[in-house]
Design a protein around this nucleic acid. Structure first.
Lengths: 100, 100
DNA sequence: TTCACATATCGAGATTTATCAATATGTTTG
DNA sequence: CAAACATATTGATAAATCTCGATATGTGAA
């Protein structure tokens, strides 16, 4: 973790929706319905569910999630036509360690 | 700590200078010369030193520090004509706990 | 009380971000 | 392959942030 990377993460955390997504993804089963095909949340939650819950447009959420992945806050996994997002606890810890 | 407060802190952390200030204030004696009147860094570092080190204008730094104090990242103490700033470890911990 | 210095606030222009609708790209299924 | 669905990218506009110089306020010293 360095200052530049930490600041990029800070940017992601400067918006309520983006921060909220990270909170939701702590406990997907509490905040999202089960997936149709996948029977677990091991790889997180699909973009559509996050988009619906956020209330923002599909393009906005897609951009948010892409950026959050780029700076290491999220891990994206593709299964068929769906992209699943989960928290990247490793980067999150590096960030909080850097701050502390 | 709640989402709104955490996002305000995120905003502070979305700028390299502001994040850097927090890093500098971890070890003031490593990054700043000793104060003339005060012989310690118990209350942190005066605005002028932070401003000089940052290279930004006095007004910009003053605004940054004020905002960082408002959202609880810094504690400000006045001694005579100087304001000293130090990290507010309590809020920082609440923030990292909230994120984790 | 006046001067000098430390910090805060104001007003403004340049840059960045928020957010959308429209469109494009992937991927499965019929 | 064509249709349908999931996600990504583009282009645009409104809002927010960055940053400064100028100015105001607060405080100790002469």
């Amino acid at each position: 973790m360095n200052l530049k990377k930490a600041t990029e993460i800070g940017k992601c955390l400067s918006n309520q929706t983006r921060f909220q997504v990270l909170e939701w993804l702590k406990e997907p089963e509490k905040h999202f319905p089960p997936h149709e095909t996948l029977k677990h949340f091991n790889d997180g939650v699909c973009v559509t569910y996050i988009q619906e819950k956020s209330g923002l447009s599909q393009s906005t959420i897609s951009t948010y999630l892409t950026n959050m992945e780029k700076c290491g806050l999220l891990i994206s996994t593709r299964h068929g036509k769906w992209s699943y997002l989960k928290r990247n606890e490793k980067t999150i810890k590096q960030f909080t360690d850097f701050l502390t």
